[in-house]
């Protein structure tokens, strides 16, 4: 039975994770049509109103609609996490592949660079970058990708080192294939499984990192809907309006849990040690 089939049929975590991921993507894509109010609409007279008709999840600071911001927050988290993972992935896989295949000084140099970057706490570096460059979606993606690629680079290098002496690679080399072709056509496709698992785990990491930066006021620009920014807003009013922090907090927790379960299921499905006879 193939790993993919086991993943589909047997894992409840995968089913839950997939459902959350699909709901998240759907919400993010259709947020403007699902939202009852424009995201920049404010109404000072309705500030911190409790959930009720007109504002199903209540209102927050300046009278913003919490439901609208939760829905649009999904859009922001999708944009940031997708592009951060994509950028990290492309950079990490390229550099890791080169390091693993070329070996020698190139490998040494790239891996020491990875070591240096990993020595810094990622979120601290991201905080530094966004505080210098200022809050914006692009800067958050850049800040998260700045250290995010290192995980992909290490993983790709390890996979390439394992695979590059395989018979089919030797055969491709004997037939005259160049390093680039071998990497792209033979090595990376066979390393895709672990990389996909890595990406699945990186996605919730990026979502939480974006929320953390926004919570500290260094993520998205003020006024941009974001789960982290909404939780930040709500913490000040926990006693008088707990709903402001509660609903984005639930959205954040469920999404991260869903992706982690999905990642777990994917890893189990891809890992031969977890496969039956």
């Amino acid at each position: 039975m193939s790993g993919a089939r086991r993943f589909r049929l047997q894992s409840w975590g995968a089913r839950f994770g997939l459902a959350v991921a699909c709901l998240w993507v759907f919400t993010a894509l259709f947020a403007p049509w699902l939202s009852p109010h424009p995201p920049d609409a404010i109404d000072l007279t309705r500030e911190l109103a409790r959930p009720g008709p007109g504002h199903l999840l209540g209102t927050g600071e300046n009278g913003i609609d919490v439901l609208t911001h939760v829905l649009h927050g999904a859009r922001v988290s999708l944009e940031v996490s997708f592009f951060a993972v994509l950028l990290s992935g492309v950079l990490g896989i390229t550099l890791g592949g080169i390091a693993g295949y070329a070996g020698g000084l190139v490998d040494e140099g790239l891996m020491r660079l990875v070591d240096v970057l990993l020595a810094f706490p990622g979120i601290l570096l991201a905080l530094f970058i966004t505080s210098v460059l200022g809050p914006s979606l692009t800067n958050v993606v850049f800040a998260l990708s700045f250290t995010g690629w290192t995980g992909y680079a290490r993983l790709t290098r390890g996979q390439v080192l394992t695979l590059r002496e395989r018979d089919y690679v030797q055969a491709a080399r004997a037939l005259g294939s160049g390093p680039g072709r071998i990497l792209v056509r033979h090595l990376l496709p066979n390393a895709a499984g672990p990389l996909l698992v890595q990406a699945t785990f990186a996605l919730p990491g990026a979502i939480v990192a974006e929320a953390s930066l926004s919570f500290l006021g260094l993520g998205v620009p003020p006024g941009t809907p974001s789960w982290g920014a909404l939780v930040d807003q709500g913490t000040q009013y926990l006693l008088v309006a707990p709903h402001v922090a509660l609903f984005p907090g639930i959205a954040l927790a469920v999404t991260v849990l869903g992706f982690n379960l999905l990642g777990d299921a994917l890893r189990d499905a891809m890992d031969p040690r977890h496969q039956g006879p």
């Binding site: 600071e61 300046n62 006021g217 003020p222 930040d232 807003q233």
Partner: peptide
């Protein structure tokens, strides 16, 4: 404005 919540909220108004 600074990252102070109140000042940011005022700036948005």
């Amino acid at each position: 404005t600074s990252t102070d919540r109140f000042r940011r909220a005022v700036a948005l108004v």
